[in-house]
Structure formats: structure tokens, C-alpha cells
């Protein structure tokens, strides 16, 4: 809770600042005065907000006229599905490519992978999204261009809110296939940067591990190369990779704002964009709070995983 509170502090002056600018719009000013008591001094507002927060009350969204928490609950699953898929894709591809590059250091495959990973990291996301849409949706029609499901497909019964998981759980394989089709392109676009990032980090982490005597010990046992790579090398290289994967959740959350808008993905990214342009302050603060919580949780999980991966960490 202490973490959440500190992360809230920078959000609150923003409420006041933007509220002043919004005074050009008399309706907004009236609503703010009524609902949030903006005429009261800033610290009072802050403590009022905190008090409400303790009851799980994030305030009411000006746009949707609903509690922010209701809005978030509706949009979070879509973003979660997109973000998790993209992180998983980036991990699978990035770590594999990074290992291949490190094991073939300075050979042709390493050079090719370097170009691919730097390309993934330096291509602007909006450009990648538009080009991907143009090629795979407009030209090739391989994937649908927008939304989470075709308009005629009913969402699966609500379980987690992740359509892929819910549809599988309900045994609706056609819905599952449809949701995967919708998911794959935005997830890939969102994964491109992190794929490159993970490739670079994995390569350098693996190169460092390769120098170690215990890799030679593993080979001296006559183990097959794949066992040496996955059990011995990748295990030892995983802490730095894990760190960067944890941090990558941050750039995925910012990435969703753009990608969700381009692909009409009804998630937190779109919601925050709409809220920001409409100066829907309670919604913005709610989104910030959510992102901060995700970030903290992910990095807590990373810390716990350190201890599981490396037994020496528990002693420290």
C-alpha cells in the first residue's frame, strides 16, 4: 500500500493543473466542482481522494458517467490479453534468437540476428503498425484489421475476460481461432521492440555465461548440446534476461496506447487516450494507478523469481 501511495503523489498535482486549464469549459468546471471539490485546497483534495481510494473508489469518469473502477474492469482484460501475448511472443523469439546469436558469435547468423533485433528496436511502432495493417490486412487479408472478435462472433462466457482463455474454457474453438486472428497482428507489432531488446540482452548474457568453467564441465560430461544450452547456459543467463522482461512491461503499457488505437483494440490504451484528450481526470489517475500497480507487481514477481532461479539470492 505504501508503494501505491508514493506512486500516487506525482499524479495529483496534475489533477489540479489540468483542472485549471479545463476552466475554459464551464461544464467541466461545474462537474469537477460538484464531484471532486476542486475549490478545496490541494492537500484536502488529495486526502479526500486517498480516503475514497481506501474504499476502492477511484472516482467517477466524466465521459462514461460510470465509476472509473467499472471502466477499468471492463478494459483491463483486453489489454492484459494483448500485453501478455506480446511479451510471450517477444520472449520466445528474442531469447531464441539471442541464444543462437551468442552461440554463433560473429558468424553470419549473428550478423543477421543483429540486423533483425536492431530493426525491431529502432522501427517506430506507429509505422510498423500501419505497414503491418497495410500488408496483412489490406493486401493479403490474412488477418482482420480491428477489434478483438469479428462483429458477428459473440464473446465467450466471461471467466477471465481474456477471450482466448475463456473460449478455450468454454470449448468454443471457432471463437478461439477468431480471437487469435485478431490478436496476432497487434501483439506482433507490440512485441517488435521487446523482441529486439530481449535478443540483445540474451546474447550478451549468454556470451558472459559461455566463458564460465561450468559450461565446460557440462560439456565434459558428454551431455547433448541442447541440454547444455537450456539447462546450464540459459539457466545461468536468466537473471539479467528476467530483469529486462520485467522492465519491458513498462514499455508495453505505453505501447498499448498507440497500438490499441490503431487496431481499435478496446483496452486500457484506448481508454487512456480518450480520457486524456477529454481531460477525464479521474480516469487518467485511475489508469496511472493501474499501470503503477502492474509495474510494481511484475517487478515483485521478478524479485521472487530471482530467488527461485538462483539459490544464492536467498542467502543474501
Amino acid at each position: 500500500m505504501a508503494f501505491v501511495l508514493t506512486h500516487l503523489v506525482p499524479g495529483d498535482p496534475a489533477v489540479a493543473n489540468l483542472g485549471d486549464r479545463a476552466s475554459a469549459d464551464p461544464v467541466a468546471v461545474r462537474i469537477y466542482r460538484e464531484h471532486f471539490g476542486l475549490d478545496k485546497p490541494l492537500p484536502v483534495q488529495y486526502f479526500v481522494y486517498l480516503g475514497n481510494l481506501l474504499h476502492g473508489d477511484l472516482g467517477e469518469s466524466e465521459q462514461s458517467q460510470r465509476p472509473v473502477s467499472t471502466d477499468l474492469a471492463e478494459y483491463i482484460p483486453a489489454t492484459a490479453e494483448l500485453a501478455i501475448t506480446s511479451i510471450v511472443l517477444a520472449c520466445l523469439l528474442g531469447i531464441t534468437l539471442g541464444v543462437i546469436a551468442a552461440l554463433n558469435r560473429n558468424r553470419l547468423s549473428d550478423q543477421i540476428i543483429r540486423v533483425v533485433s536492431l530493426g525491431g528496436m529502432s522501427t517506430p511502432q506507429f509505422w510498423l503498425a500501419l505497414v503491418a495493417l497495410y500488408i496483412f490486412f489490406y493486401k493479403l487479408s490474412w488477418v482482420p484489421g480491428s477489434g478483438r472478435l469479428d462483429a458477428i462472433v459473440l464473446p465467450p462466457p466471461h471467466l477471465t475476460g481474456l477471450f482466448t482463455i475463456d473460449s478455450l474454457a468454454a470449448g468454443q474453438f471457432d471463437v478461439f481461432a477468431n480471437s487469435i486472428q485478431h490478436l496476432i497482428l497487434p501483439a506482433c507489432v507490440l512485441a517488435a521492440f521487446n523482441m529486439g531488446l530481449f535478443t540483445r540482452f540474451t546474447r550478451s548474457a549468454v556470451l558472459e555465461v559461455l566463458e564460465n568453467d561450468y559450461v565446460r564441465t557440462a560439456r565434459a560430461k558428454g551431455l547433448p548440446e541442447l541440454t547444455v544450452v537450456f539447462r546450464h547456459i540459459l539457466r545461468a543467463a536468466s537473471p539479467p534476461i528476467l530483469t529486462v522482461v520485467g522492465l519491458a512491461f513498462g514499455n508495453v503499457m505505453t505501447g498499448t496506447v498507440l497500438v490499441e488505437n490503431i487496431f481499435s483494440w478496446p483496452g486500457i490504451g484506448q481508454y487512456s487516450y480518450r480520457s486524456a484528450t477529454a481531460l477525464d481526470l479521474p480516469a487518467i489517475v485511475g489508469v496511472m494507478l493501474f499501470v503503477a500497480i502492474v509495474y510494481i507487481l511484475v517487478n515483485m514477481v521478478v524479485d521472487i523469481l530471482y530467488g527461485i532461479i538462483d539459490p544464492r539470492v536467498q542467502l543474501a
Binding site: N212, Y214, R216, T217, R231, H232, R235, D310, P311, R312
Partner: peptide
């Protein structure tokens, strides 16, 4: 190998 400190995998 020579160095028993580094010849065993530290995490296994």
C-alpha cells in the same frame, strides 16, 4: 578442472 569454485554450476 582446476577451479572448483567456478567449475560447478552455481544454480543447480
Amino acid at each position: 578442472f582446476q577451479d572448483p569454485m567456478s567449475s560447478l554450476h552455481p544454480m543447480l
